[in-house]
């Protein structure tokens, strides 16, 4: 009982998600600033590290405005729900050797489903905002998630197919440098689909501020906005952790195995994502749809075929 509460509240639960969100937000700012030839947060704390903390605490204490004419229950229930759903995948991730909250034989399935459900919650936030821009954002997020999740699921399933298990711990344990090479195309596809799922450039279409005023975020302020932001960063964590677990061997390190390597791998993915963000403009909805259905989905299917072939070539004998 005590252990469950600790896991839910401290690690890998709420507190961990909060610290991760604050830390990643600060890191994003600093990293982005370097790419922009700026300084970034500077004055509060070491290298401006308190700035994000202050920003978040400011948002927490600000009045959360519920606009006229919206359904207040739908409007206010969605942000906490989005946060909870975004934090849930952490329970299925093998954070270090032997540490996993819910060790399930269907961990991969749970991970994929929990990640995939998040955009639908965000669609409902847009739907419940009674704002044209938010509604457009909601429709966009729905369109994008349907198109991108197909390839996301197919790419995420390739390790399961290769190792013949959906147990995440077994997937990590069976992974080797060689299996990494076989899964490399799958990893690249997973990463591209991840950009679409997390609404990162060039797929930041649903919350395009220049087009539809941040889409589903438009009407949110104060605590609700804070919750949505934390949910976004918890989602980052879930997807990065998923990529690390499925393709990069999770906590496996060079000399010793530890959470440290898990963290480093996640940060590397984050840095790569930020670099793309600093050099890629947004594409349009039509271009995204074309890209997704014309190229991504067929290629992920081919990738599955490749994984099956590789399995029969190299793994069947064992």
């Amino acid at each position: 009982m005590m252990q469950t509460i600790t896991q839910a509240v401290v690690f890998p639960g709420l507190l961990y998600a909060l610290i991760w969100a604050v830390g990643l937000f600060w890191f994003f700012r600093k990293f982005m600033a370097t790419l922009h030839k700026r300084v970034g947060p500077k004055f509060n704390g070491i290298a401006g590290s308190y700035q994000t903390l202050f920003d978040f605490s400011k948002l927490l204490t600000k009045e959360s405005i519920t606009p006229d004419g919206v359904n207040p229950y739908l409007f206010s229930i969605m942000p906490p729900l989005a946060l909870i759903i975004a934090m849930l995948p952490s329970a299925f991730i093998p954070w270090s050797d032997g540490f996993i909250v819910v060790g399930s034989d269907y961990g991969l399935l749970a991970l994929v489903v929990l990640i995939g459900i998040e955009p639908f919650l965000l669609f409902l936030t847009g739907f419940g905002s009674n704002n044209k821009y938010s509604f457009l954002g909601g429709v966009r997020i729905l369109t994008q998630s349907i198109s991108m999740e197909t390839s996301f699921f197919l790419a995420a399933l390739s390790p399961g197919l290769l190792f013949g298990t959906m147990n995440l711990t077994s997937i990590v344990e069976s992974s080797t440098w060689f299996s990494f090479l076989i899964l490399l195309p799958g990893f690249i596809l997973y990463f591209i689909a991840l950009l679409g799922l997390l609404e990162q450039p060039p797929f930041n279409i649903p919350d395009a501020e220049q087009e539809i005023v941040y889409g589903f975020y438009t009407e949110y302020s104060g605590t609700n906005y804070f919750l949505l932001k934390i949910a976004e960063f918890a989602e980052f964590m879930a997807v990065f952790a998923g990529a690390t677990t499925l393709f990069l061997g999770a906590y496996k390190g060079l000399l010793f195995d530890s959470y440290f390597f898990f963290f480093i791998k996640m940060i590397l993915i984050a840095m790569f994502m930020m670099t793309l963000r600093a050099a890629t403009p947004r594409i349009t909805m039509a271009q995204m749809l074309r890209f997704s259905w014309k190229y991504m989905v067929p290629i992920t299917l081919i990738n599955l075929a490749w994984v099956l072939l590789a399995k029969s070539l190299f793994f069947m004998g064992a």
Partner: peptide, 9 residues
């Protein structure tokens, strides 16, 4: 187009 890098540079 949602890319601020050039403006900053």
């Amino acid at each position: 187009m949602g890319l601020h890098t050039l403006a900053m540079w």
